[in-house]
Nucleic acid binder design. Structure first.
Length: 616
RNA sequence: GCGCCCAUAGCUCAGCUGGAUAGAGCGACGGCCUCCGGAGCCGUAGGUCGCAAGUUCGAAUCUUGCUGGGCGCGCCA
């Protein structure tokens, strides 16, 4: 049974409870593909090309041959965009920055895109886009089927390992983080055209099952109605008996042997346990609006039959070393407490296998059987060293070789407002469903107060969307590597960078569109007012932001984007009347802008796994 | 002992891989309802970006060394 260091955490389960460790495992972890996202609708993309050409013309023969100079075009708060490349470039070619900037501007051909370009400070090039250029780009993007979303240049098969709860144990906030982050990344990568294979690495195998099965036997073997309503209670009861009753502990150990030996009765009980849990998790995923399905479960038991062969292959490759009776791999670059090499134990003294072997089998399965190119592990930061060692070993074994690569999508712990691990007042882990229930109840109270005219059913539906959205957004909106403080009041405050704020902006736009009557026509768009200009600029950045999330695997960038659009719209809303516009043309144009904003906002939220109701 | 992560306004967080005056929300203070949803908008106050060096035209961002907090380091997962 093991001592489990007093916590009895499951493999992945432990992940979320502890604090951050490593952002970047050392081996087989680099991302070789290009850093620059090419987004068609983003005006910064054509501008980069124009600036490249201008730089080449300005430098003439002095231009560097091999690497095309980067104009370093960024968004700016003092212009629509700014190009900083001239200053670094001037240094490289020995010119004065301002002179070079002037030469670049002189050679620049951007009349169709820019209203104005000027040089500022030591050599910044500031630019402002033409309203008609923004209009054209927006209309083009808006007329496409998937407005604003663009596929990756070379789609690949990606495996995402996330959620990973343990059978007969309640999911806690750590699992919730993995589930929410992983699900958002799955949506983003799919939207980019990749083939995403979700893998829910269920903790459905191992020594704890001896005591769980024995406990099940005690509760009612042969009873057709096996209810595990409270998973944690079930686990705790089994655990308590195991600790207190030596006879039970003995039976449990024998049961493990039976399980591993394939005893039919034992396997039947095991399946019962697993089925109960899968059903429960499935319900939780449905309620959360998570895309994981039962067919995505690839639990530890899946790999169990592969483990002997994994060992045999490691042996054939000369990677195995016997140490204190255990079989180990010593990947280079890892040192132990004593300063010696650090082992990855792939077979224990007693001949059993641990999670390292299972993870190795998982990599082999994912690259060879599933033929995945990119392997993502949405697992808590404390496991970074373990994963780094597993990746290193898999690389040595040849199971992880370019172009395939693995990345640890690490995340920090969930903390309470006291900055300690998030727990209930009683000191217990917070149960997922009670969390969801509370979110919905709190949301419902607000909906009832703010919108009493909605019928009860709609109120409940909205409260569901808002409550779940609030939980997800709070989790996703800060950098995942950092610990995250769970705070109901802030989460459901509905102000600032929160899901309800964004959802509210969306609902308000839909309300306008409803009142307008006729269906909006994006071709009627004509950007004119400053607030329209700013909103248009934001909308066009969508594909670049999504590509950035694809690259960095950081959904909080998408949240930041959602917030900026919602803010830009609120600004537009205050300054530009839509339904009472000055002219019919202006009204149609603004309705088009509303439509594009609602679509983009809704789509961005959907990539976060958050619903955007039409009214709330 | 070795290694990894984190440190930005009173609080919770951004800061787009080195750009100009470090931005939001909450909280505080002050404005905006004859007008498309006030779950909104505008403004004021609030900072030695943990400390110290270094790299350079330019550093919250890169390097090194410290300090503080967290985590990991052989048969649990």
């Amino acid at each position: 049974m093991g001592q489990e260091k007093g916590r009895g955490r499951g493999r992945r389960g432990r992940a979320g409870r502890l604090a951050p460790q490593v952002k970047e495992p050392s081996i087989a972890n680099s991302i070789p593909d290009a850093r620059v996202a090419h987004a068609m609708s983003d005006p910064l993309t054509p501008l980069t090309e124009r600036f490249r050409a201008a730089i080449a013309a300005a430098l003439g023969p002095a231009a560097p041959k091999d690497a095309p100079p980067d104009p370093a075009i960024r968004r700016s708060d003092r212009a629509d965009f700014q190009a900083n490349g001239a200053m670094t470039l001037a240094k490289a070619v020995g010119q004065k920055p301002r002179d070079l900037a002037a030469a670049i501007v002189a050679a620049l051909r951007v009349d169709d895109l820019c209203a104005k370009v000027e040089i500022a400070g030591p050599g910044f090039i500031n630019g402002w886009l033409r309203d008609d250029a923004l209009t054209r780009l927006l209309v083009e993007a808006g007329e496409r089927e998937e407005a604003f979303l663009e596929r990756a240049a070379s789609p690949e098969k990606v495996v995402i390992d996330y959620s990973s709860p343990n059978v007969a144990k309640e999911m806690h906030v750590g699992h919730l983080r993995s589930t929410i982050i992983g699900d958002s990344l799955a949506r983003v990568l799919e939207a980019r055209g990749h083939t995403v294979v979700r893998q829910n690495h269920l903790g459905d195998w191992g020594t704890p099952f001896g005591m769980l099965i024995e406990h099940l036997v005690d509760l009612g073997l042969g009873n057709a109605e096996l209810h595990i309503d409270d998973l944690d209670a079930f686990y705790r009861a089994a655990r308590a008996k195991f600790d207190a009753d030596p006879a039970f502990a003995d039976k449990s150990r024998r049961r493990v042997v039976l399980l591993q030996g394939g005893d039919a009765d034992t396997l039947a009980l095991w399946r019962e346990l697993v089925e109960q849990s899968r059903r429960y998790f499935g319900e939780a995923y449905d309620r959360l609006g998570v895309t994981l399905r039962d067919s995505d479960v690839a639990g530890e038991s899946l790999y169990n039959p592969m483990l002997p062969d994994v060992i045999a292959e490691l042996d054939r490759k000369g990677l195995l070393v016997e140490s204190d009776g255990a079989l180990c791999v010593f990947p280079p670059g890892f040192t132990s407490k004593e300063g010696g090499p650090l082992p990855l134990i792939v077979r224990k003294q007693d001949g059993g296998y641990g999670y390292a072997t299972t993870d190795l089998a998982g990599i082999r399965y994912r690259t060879q059987t599933l033929t995945a190119r990119r392997l993502l592990y949405v697992v808590g930061a404390p496991q970074s060293q373990h994963l780094a060692m597993v990746f290193a070993t898999a690389t040595l074994a040849g199971w992880l070789a370019p172009p395939a690569r693995a990345e640890h999508v690490a995340f920090g712990s969930v903390l309470g407002s006291d900055k300690k691990m998030f727990k209930t007042r009683a000191g217990e882990t917070v149960k997922l469903l009670s969390l969801v229930k509370e979110a919905e109840e709190r949301a419902l109270a607000v909906v009832v107060e703010k919108n009493p005219e909605l019928d009860a059913e709609t109120q409940r539906a909205v409260a569901h969307s808002v409550g779940i959205g609030a939980i997800k957004y709070a989790d996703l909106s800060s950098d995942r590597i950092k610990d995250y403080v769970f705070d109901w009041d802030r989460m459901l405050a509905f102000e600032g960078n929160t899901a309800p704020y964004a959802m509210y902006a969306h609902a308000r736009i839909r309300s306008i569109l409803r009142k307008a009557g006729a269906a909006p026509d994006v071709r009627a768009l004509s950007i004119a007012a400053p607030a329209e200009h700013a909103l248009a600029l934001d909308l066009l950045a969508f594909p670049s932001v999504v590509a950035e999330v694809e690259r960095t695997l950081e959904p909080h960038r998408l949240c930041g984007y959602v917030f900026s659009i919602a803010t830009a719209f609120s600004n537009f809303y205050e300054q530009c009347s839509v339904l009472q516009a000055d002219s019919a043309e202006q009204r149609r144009s603004r309705l088009a802008l509303c439509e594009l904003t609602a679509r983009t906002l809704g789509r961005a939220l959907s990539l976060l796994g958050i619903e955007a109701p039409d009214r709330m």
